[in-house]
Computed example of a mutant assay.
Amino acid sequence: MHQLPVHQTPAPVTDAPKLNVEPLEAASSLRMLAYDALKRAITQMDIYGSAAEFRLDERQLSETLGVSRTPIREAMTVLEQEGFVRSVPRRGIFVVRKTKREILDLIVVWAALEGMAARLAATNASDDEIDSLRRLFNEFEATPPASPMHEYSQANIAFHQAVIRMGGCRLIVDMTGNLFLHMRAIRAVSVRQENRFEISMREHMAIIDALEQRDPDLAERLVREHTMGLAAHVERHGVFPE
Rank of each mutant, 00 (worst) to 15 (best):
A37T: 13
A142R: 10
R236Y: 14
I207N: 04
T43N: 14
V234C: 03
A51W: 07
L133F: 01
M183Y: 13
V239W: 03
L222I: 15
H237F: 03
V191S: 01
E194S: 03
T9I: 11
E53G: 10
R184I: 03
T99E: 15
A188E: 08
I93Y: 09
L104E: 02
A206C: 02
A231E: 13
D46K: 10
G229Q: 09
R73S: 07
E74Q: 10
R86T: 15
M201K: 13
V13T: 09
D209L: 15
A162W: 01
H182R: 04
A146D: 00
Q81G: 15
A117C: 08
E242V: 05
S132Q: 09
R101L: 12
M149V: 06
I157M: 07
I130G: 00
A232L: 10
D131Y: 05
L104Q: 11
Q8G: 10
L120G: 03
H182Y: 10
F197D: 04
R236G: 13
Q3V: 05
V189C: 01
S153C: 02
F84D: 08
E63D: 09
G83Y: 01
L171H: 05
K39G: 08
R73P: 00
G229Y: 00
A122E: 06
V88D: 05
L222G: 14
T70E: 12
L24N: 02
T64Q: 12
M116D: 14
A210C: 14
G168M: 02
E203W: 01
T77V: 13
D36C: 03
L56S: 05
I208S: 09
R165V: 02
E114R: 13
A122T: 08
F180Y: 13
F140L: 01
Q81V: 02
V95I: 13
A75D: 15
Q154C: 10
V95D: 04
G92L: 11
V67P: 04
G92I: 01
R192V: 06
Q154N: 12
Y35A: 10
L4G: 07
N124I: 12
A155S: 11
D57S: 08
Q161V: 14
E139F: 14
A162F: 00
R184T: 02
A16S: 09
R236M: 13
I107C: 00
T14E: 15
V173E: 15
S50C: 00
A75Y: 07
W110V: 11
D217C: 04
M1Q: 13
E82A: 11
T123D: 05
A188S: 08
E141G: 07
V163C: 11
A27E: 09
E25A: 02
D46G: 07
A155T: 14
F94P: 10
I93W: 13
F159P: 00
N124M: 04
R224G: 05
A210K: 07
A16L: 07
E212L: 06
H226E: 06
Q81D: 03
I164H: 00
L218I: 07
N20E: 07
Q8Y: 15
L19Y: 06
D209W: 12
